[in-house]
Each structure stands twice: as structure tokens, then as C-alpha cells.
């Protein structure tokens, strides 16, 4: 029953889906991994961005073009959300953690309610030349949309990695959670640094959201499907590593795909949570913590 072909196909699909998981986790890798913000609304932001892509798509825009257009508004949206979080919670210190989680839970809920009221509960899709067609490689058919996702995921990972390691602002973002005071004495403002970084994390979520609706139909409550997966990827990667996030996404994708092939679809969603718990128990610093 387990032919070599079947296994091979499962791994290939796992890698492609893994690229998708990585792409939608990069924003969280910055927000939670680098900034220590308990951003459980990340998956809701992905869904919000997917709907914005849908909205622009209804005017005939290609989802990838739409992704580029929503990046800037999402950046400013992220800046505002962080500013509010900072003023209301982080600035007061102490138990910001738990109350911060409640804050982001509330935001996720609001996004979901907003989407339900505005767009209804029906599933929404977009169309593009690469959606619905496949590339035939021998016996395998690889959907073009997954190839598009692969390219975007790699470009986004490389882009963020270069930004975070080669620019002054990027290095400051990586330093801010390690020692905010020390950042001050090199002449940077830690609050503005985090605010900017959260904007970038949200802009990355905008691109992730466009990929989300390219990959599958969306509905307002879809964030539930991705919250566990994105946190699993970020924790597995080791908080805050971009290339680690890509590799962790691939690992989750392949394991999920193998489980799906061997045990059936109903087990697949449990993989992310299982892996998350396993990592936290065995290697809480993740695989690629610097």
C-alpha cells in the first residue's frame, strides 16, 4: 500500500505546503519571536488580509498585485495596534503578558466579527491564471498556485533575513528584546523600534494572507485553523530566526503530509499541536535559536 511513489508525492506536497506554512508564519516570527509580543491575533490578521485580497480581486486585480497594494496599509495598521498595546499594557510592565494575550484575543475576535458582518459566512475565493491549473511532472500534478507560494515564501524569507541582518533598523529589531536599555545607549528608541517592527510583521502577514486565499477558500473563522500551525512553526524555528522559520515550516508541512497519507485527513490538524508540545517539552529553545 505504501508505494515509493506515494511517499515521494507526500514529501513533495509536504515541502510545498511547508513553504506556505513558513510564509504565513514569518510575521509571527517577528512579532512573537523577536519582539516578545503575545500576538495571538496574527492568524486573524492573515484572514483579514485574505479578505482584502478578495476585495481587490473583485475589481479584477491579481491576488499577488493585491498583496503588494495591501502591504502598506497593513504596515500602518500594525503600527497602530502596537502603539495601542504599548500604551495600554506594555508600558505598565509587570503582568503585561497575560493581559496582552487577552488584548490580542479581543482583536482577533473583532476582526472575525467584522469579516462576518461585512462579507458573510460564505467561503470566498479569488481567481488567477495560476489557480486551478497544474504543472505535470511525469505522473505528478503540481498545482501552479503552490509553485507561486514557493517563490513568494523564499523571496519573503530572504528579504526579511537580509533586512534584519544588514540594516541598522533590522539589527535594532533583533536587539530590542534582548536589552531595550542598551539599545537606548546606542542612540535608538526601543519603543519606536518595536512599533516599526510590528508594522513589518503585520505587512508580512498581509502577504501571508494573500497566499492564504491563493491556496484555499477563506471564511471569517479560518484563523482557528492557522493559529496552532503558525505558533508551532515559530516555536520550532527557535524564536525569531527567519531561515529557521522556513525550515520549520517545511518540517511541519512534510510531517503533516505524511500523517495525512498514512493515517488519513482527520489526524493532520493534530500534528501542529502535537509538534508544538513536543518541541516545548524537549527543546524549548527551538531548532535554530542562535
Amino acid at each position: 500500500m505504501f508505494s515509493f511513489e506515494l511517499l515521494f508525492e507526500a514529501v513533495v506536497f509536504g515541502l510545498l505546503v511547508g513553504c506556505f506554512y513558513a510564509a504565513i508564519s514569518l510575521g509571527l516570527s517577528i512579532a512573537f519571536g523577536l519582539l516578545d509580543v503575545p500576538h495571538i491575533a496574527h492568524a486573524a490578521f492573515l484572514v483579514l488580509a485574505a479578505y482584502m485580497t478578495f476585495l481587490l480581486g473583485s475589481y479584477g486585480l491579481d491576488p499577488l498585485v493585491a498583496a503588494v497594494l495591501i502591504v502598506i496599509p497593513f504596515f500602518f495598521f500594525g503600527v497602530l495596534v502596537y502603539r495601542f498595546y504599548y500604551e495600554a499594557f506594555e508600558k505598565r510592565g509587570a503582568d503585561a503578558g497575560v493581559r496582552g494575550i487577552a488584548f490580542f484575543f479581543g482583536i482577533a475576535f473583532l476582526v472575525q466579527v467584522f469579516l462576518s458582518m461585512k462579507f458573510g459566512l460564505d467561503q470566498r475565493t479569488v481567481s488567477a491564471p495560476y489557480i486551478g491549473r497544474s504543472l505535470e511532472l511525469g505522473d505528478m500534478r503540481i498545482p501552479w498556485r503552490l509553485i507561486v507560494v514557493l517563490c513568494v515564501a523564499i523571496a519573503l524569507t530572504v528579504g526579511l533575513k537580509l533586512y534584519l541582518s544588514k540594516t541598522f533598523q533590522g539589527r535594532a529589531i533583533r536587539a530590542v528584546a534582548q536589552d531595550a536599555w542598551a539599545l537606548r545607549i546606542v542612540g535608538a528608541n526601543p519603543v519606536l523600534t518595536k512599533q516599526w517592527a510590528f508594522g513589518i510583521a503585520t505587512a508580512a502577514a498581509a502577504i501571508g494572507g494573500a497566499l492564504l486565499i491563493i491556496v484555499s477558500p477563506v471564511e471569517p473563522s479560518l484563523d482557528r485553523v492557522y493559529i496552532g500551525r503558525t505558533f508551532c512553526v515559530v516555536v520550532l524555528a527557535g524564536l525569531g530566526s527567519m531561515s529557521g522559520t522556513l525550515v520549520a515550516g517545511l518540517i511541519l508541512g512534510v510531517i503533516e503530509s505524511l500523517v495525512l497519507t498514512m493515517f488519513g485527513a482527520s489526524w493532520a490538524p493534530a500534528v501542529a499541536y502535537g509538534l508544538l508540545l513536543l518541541v516545548l517539552a524537549i527543546r524549548p529553545q527551538g531548532l535554530f535559536r542562535q
Binding site: F168, R171, A172, D179, A182
Partner: peptide
């Protein structure tokens, strides 16, 4: 007050912020 997880060079580069 160094940035312990950043490399020596990255610490120096941040000094020039």
C-alpha cells in the same frame, strides 16, 4: 549591557546606529 545573542560584529555595528 551587550546584546548577548548577537555576534560581536553585530554589537559593534549597532554601536554605530
Amino acid at each position: 549591557r551587550l546584546f548577548p545573542q548577537l555576534t560581536v560584529e553585530e554589537n559593534l555595528q549597532l554601536g554605530a546606529y
